[in-house]
Design a protein around this nucleic acid. Structure first.
Lengths: 209, 209
DNA sequence: TCAAGTCGGTGCGAAAGCGCACGCTGCCGC
DNA sequence: GCGGCAGCGTGCGCTTTCGCACCGACTTGA
């Protein structure tokens, strides 16, 4: 199915009836506070699945799943996934390993939120998104990024300006082009590397792509 | 086995051979950065298990497990846990549900780190610890709390001073006594409530205690 | 082609947290 | 009973981020 930008796959607390496997879409798990402020918990692309709480047994989570980059995904009825999960074969194994990778990403998000500045967080975020897309272009307003990072839009403007002046990215009105990926990695904090390394370790079949 | 304060159960990246079930000890999952700065990812007491990565399939995590409040725990060889896990019965179910509760705690830590001040985070942290102990006393220096929250020791001093002046806690040289728990909950952010509610939902048998 | 709306740039003052330095005090061991 | 030290209090300047306000520029559609 098509996943347009901004589509909400699950709302906080919703009983999740389906799981989603993005192909070229990116979905963010976002927590929205009572005040309306928000913070991204993790980002899911075609390496992963939306709806881990189904097979983890909770059937819902306190966070929202929202499409951050338009594309398509496969949708599967929860019951069908569970049939296969309960065969306790390779799929179960895979799903649990993916879930551990997700846990690593969430942990590192917590660490990054605590210790790193907006500049570094933006780098981490761009890299995580880039890894889940083909090409080096993101369609993404600064306002949206700000919502994901849980910071002010002006803060993103400033950080993005620095990256642009450093020749790392180029952007105009919602289109971001990454010009120098290795420099982006240099300017990022260790958080990205930790997540990347752990994801590759847990899901080695992905690296082959 | 006895778990003295400060004991490290796993170091980052260690292959985990055992799992631990705390009885009256509290263990923190802590990420330590290259710079030496640290941040707590989640806290585990007798509601949980240390070493979820064993049955999740990763066998290690990038974080450290360190005893934050001395006490005792059961230790079980990983292979034995896996034998039982692979019977796909109620234990597997329980472990996965616990892991989802852990995920919620990590997510909320990320949110809290982003949006809330030291005062509120201290409240959340005290409540999470208190829930995992009997009684209303913690043996805990401000320096240790600062390491867990990933803030300066002075920041904790200031926040704890506010709580003391408000009559919520009383402390002296490493001993904290909670005088007014309901007020502590009031002064905390929504993060504690979210974690508490979700833990109770996922592990209802705990509420009965 | 032009009006309206979205997106991004900039400039304040305020607040929170940090790093550092120094000093006090209650506790523990000799 | 007394020294030493761990644990806590406090002050100060600096940096980062926030909140708010306003403006300019690009895009889109009637």
């Amino acid at each position: 199915m098509a996943l347009p930008l901004g589509k909400i796959l699950y709302e906080s607390g919703d009983t999740q009836r389906h799981v989603f496997f993005p192909t070229d879409a990116i979905v963010s798990l976002l927590y929205v506070m009572e005040s309306g402020a928000s913070a991204e918990i993790s980002v899911v692309g075609n390496e992963g699945i939306i709806g881990v709480s189904l097979f983890m047994g909770g059937e819902s989570t306190p966070s929202r799943a929202i499409v951050q980059s338009a594309g398509t995904a496969y949708r599967l009825l929860g019951e069908r996934l569970m049939e296969e999960f309960n065969r306790h074969g390779e799929l179960q194994n895979l799903l649990l390993r993916y879930t551990q990778a997700l846990i690593t990403q969430m942990s590192q998000t917590a660490v990054c939120n605590r210790h790193h500045g907006i500049d570094q967080q933006l780098c981490r975020w761009l890299l995580l998104s880039l890894d889940r897309l083909s090409g080096n272009r993101l369609i993404m307003t600064q306002e949206l990024i700000a919502n994901m990072l849980g910071v002010r839009r002006e803060g993103v403007t400033e950080a993005a300006g620095k990256l642009q002046r450093a020749g790392v990215i180029n952007y105009r009105r919602g289109h971001i082009e990454v010009l120098d990926r290795s420099k982006l990695e240099e300017m990022s904090c260790e958080c990205y590397a930790v997540v990347k390394r752990e994801t590759d370790r847990l899901l080695p079949y992905l690296s082959a792509r």
